[in-house]
C-alpha cells in the first residue's frame, strides 16, 4: 500500500475540499483513507478495501450524502494498440505503461462511486477502492444505498468485479449466457477487428515510382 500523501496533496486542495476531507476522515477514521486528491475541483478519496461498506455508511449517515449518483469500475491496464502493425491508426494510442489517475491505485482494478447531497448545493464526493487483481471483489453497497443494485450488477458483468453481499449478481445488460467482461481492456472490440480500416492510404503509385511517405 502506498503511503499517505495527504500532506503534499493538501497544499493544492481548495478550502472546501480540505474541510470535506477533514469530515470524511473524522467519520471514517484516518486509517481507512489511503490517499486523497482533487480532480478538477472534486474531492477523490481512496479508501481501504475493508472499509468500503463503512465508507458508504459514513456517507449516508454522518456526511449527509443521501444521493447515490453511480458506482462503476476502472481497468487501469494499458489499452492494447489495435491493428498497429497494419498501419491502422484509427483508435487513440494510450500510454503503454500502467499509470493511475487521481488518488492512485494499488493495482489493475478499481471500483469508484459518486455520492452527493440533495440538500447542500455543490456537494459531492468521489470514492475509490482498490481491489485484488486475481479475484477482484469488494463489499456491496445495496443494503445502504438500494440504488447500488443495478450499478453493481453492471460493474460485475462489465469488469468481472464481485460484490460481496449483493442479493443477486446477475447479468443486467448482457444475455445470461454471455461470457467475458467487455469493459476489461483485454476484451477486444469485435467491430474493429472483423473489418480492415478503410483509412489506409490506398493510392496506387505511378509505375516505376517508389511509394512516397504520405504526409498529412
Amino acid at each position: 500500500m502506498s503511503e499517505n500523501t495527504e500532506v503534499e496533496v493538501g497544499a493544492t486542495m481548495s478550502p472546501e475540499n480540505l474541510e470535506l476531507l477533514g469530515r470524511v476522515s473524522a467519520a471514517l477514521g484516518a486509517e481507512a483513507i489511503i490517499e486523497s486528491a482533487q480532480a478538477v475541483g472534486d474531492l477523490v478519496v481512496r479508501v481501504a478495501n475493508a472499509s468500503w461498506r463503512e465508507a458508504a455508511k459514513a456517507c449516508r449517515g454522518a456526511l449527509g450524502f443521501n444521493y447515490l449518483s453511480f458506482i462503476g469500475g476502472i481497468d487501469w491496464m494499458p489499452a492494447p494498440v489495435v491493428g498497429g502493425e497494419a498501419g491502422d491508426t484509427s483508435s487513440p494510442v494510450q500510454p503503454a505503461e500502467q499509470t493511475y489517475g487521481a488518488a492512485g491505485s494499488a493495482g489493475r482494478f478499481q471500483v469508484f462511486a459518486r455520492v452527493a447531497s440533495t440538500s447542500v448545493p455543490r456537494s459531492g464526493l468521489t470514492l475509490k477502492v482498490d481491489l485484488d487483481e486475481e479475484s477482484p471483489a469488494v463489499d456491496s453497497w445495496v443494503s445502504i444505498y438500494p440504488g447500488a443494485d443495478w450499478h453493481e450488477r453492471e460493474t460485475w458483468e462489465m469488469l468481472g468485479i464481485g460484490f460481496n453481499g449483493h442479493p443477486s449478481l446477475r447479468h443486467l445488460y448482457l444475455p445470461a449466457e454471455f461470457e467475458g467482461n467487455p469493459l476489461r481492456k483485454d476484451f477486444p472490440l469485435l467491430a474493429r477487428e472483423v473489418k480492415p480500416w478503410p483509412g489506409l492510404v490506398n493510392v496506387e503509385p505511378m509505375p516505376g515510382e517508389d511509394v512516397e511517405e504520405e504526409a498529412e
Binding site: S69, F70, P92
Partner: peptide
C-alpha cells in the same frame, strides 16, 4: 492527463460523465 466528473441537469435527470484521460487523442 487527468480525470473529471461533470454532471448536468438533463431533461430526464442527472446525467454525468466521469472522464479519465491519459493525454491521448481519446
Amino acid at each position: 492527463e487527468g480525470e473529471v466528473w461533470v454532471n448536468t441537469e438533463n431533461p430526464l435527470g442527472e446525467m454525468g460523465y466521469y472522464v479519465i484521460s491519459k493525454g491521448a487523442t481519446g
